[in-house]
């Protein structure tokens, strides 16, 4: 059977990512604590200051904690995607990226396997977070938890591909702090993760425009609608399109003859 070797390859890459994840319990804990702090401390504190009026997809007035949950889901995925980009940089230094790339499978396939693996790891984290939020009292319709899965896959690929693309620019681990400051934080804060867009517009038109343009906003809205069993075609369309473009660029970046790998050479 011709298909089996491809599946074995996928199984191997995903299995390794999960094993590594299990071995890095502190990373898992950190990834979980971060959104929980936002939920329990930040959102609880802002609950009074920021009432959220009725907005789509919510049927009633909601508490700020309820509003912020999909944004925090996006945050988990954003950090996870960037972390796997960090591991790409780290991996490349350690040489295990080389191990991946000398596999006889086409490079685009290897990178897609790698992205799927990190996306699944982030989905596990998201579901643990959603379970805690459920226990805390933030409950979406039961089927919403199933609906959200495809949205998680798209978002995971989007931020993962972005991370991959960045990893072709970032040569050294130290530069990753810059990625945090100039990519992760702006993407998160200049989006609809913490405040609805219409509220941003009241504050500053420029910030509103940036946020409306930010693909992460659309990913978060896609997650938000899916969690409440609704479809937001615009958000889905934009998210998928951005994901495909980023994926293509990342694959190009790892192309041995055209990409940035070649420009940087193997001069070590």
């Amino acid at each position: 059977m011709r298909l089996m070797p491809w599946l074995h390859c996928l199984r191997g890459v995903v299995g390794r990512e999960l094993l590594r994840f299990l071995h890095q319990r502190s990373r898992f804990l950190a990834a979980l604590v971060r959104p929980l702090v936002w939920l329990f401390v930040f959102a609880a504190g802002f609950r009074m200051a920021l009432g959220v009026a009725m907005t789509e997809p919510y049927q009633t007035y909601i508490l700020y904690e309820v509003y912020i949950v999909p944004g925090l889901v996006g945050m988990i995925q954003l950090f996870n995607g960037m972390q796997s980009s960090l591991s790409m940089v780290y991996d490349r230094e350690m040489g295990s990226m080389r191990v991946l790339l000398v596999s006889p499978f086409p490079r685009w396939y290897l990178l897609v396997c790698k992205l799927l693996a990190s996306t699944l790891v982030s989905a596990v984290q998201v579901y643990v977070f959603l379970a805690i939020a459920w226990w805390y009292g933030i409950q979406a319709p039961p089927m919403g938890y199933l609906w959200v899965l495809p949205a998680l896959l798209v978002t995971g690929f989007m931020v993962g591909a972005l991370g991959l693309l960045l990893s072709t620019f970032v040569r050294q681990l130290e530069n990753f702090a810059g990625v945090m400051n100039f990519v992760i934080f702006p993407m998160f804060f200049l989006s609809s993760a913490l405040y609805p867009l219409w509220r941003l517009r009241e504050g500053s038109h420029l910030v509103y425009q940036i946020a409306a343009f930010n693909p992460f906003t659309h990913a978060v809205e896609m997650i938000r609608f899916a969690l409440y069993e609704r479809v937001n075609p615009e958000a889905i369309l934009i998210s998928v399109a951005v994901t495909l473009v980023l994926l293509a660029l990342a694959i190009l970046g790892y192309n041995p003859s055209r990409g940035l790998m070649a420009r940087k050479g193997g001069g070590d």
Binding site: P5, H8, C9, G12, G15, L19, H23, F105
Partner: peptide, 18 residues
């Protein structure tokens, strides 16, 4: 952090082995 066997299994999978 992985065992010898896990390291080899990963490589085998990358070459399409069951």
């Amino acid at each position: 952090d992985l065992s010898v066997a896990q390291n080899l299994a990963y490589h085998a999978a990358l070459h399409g082995m069951g």
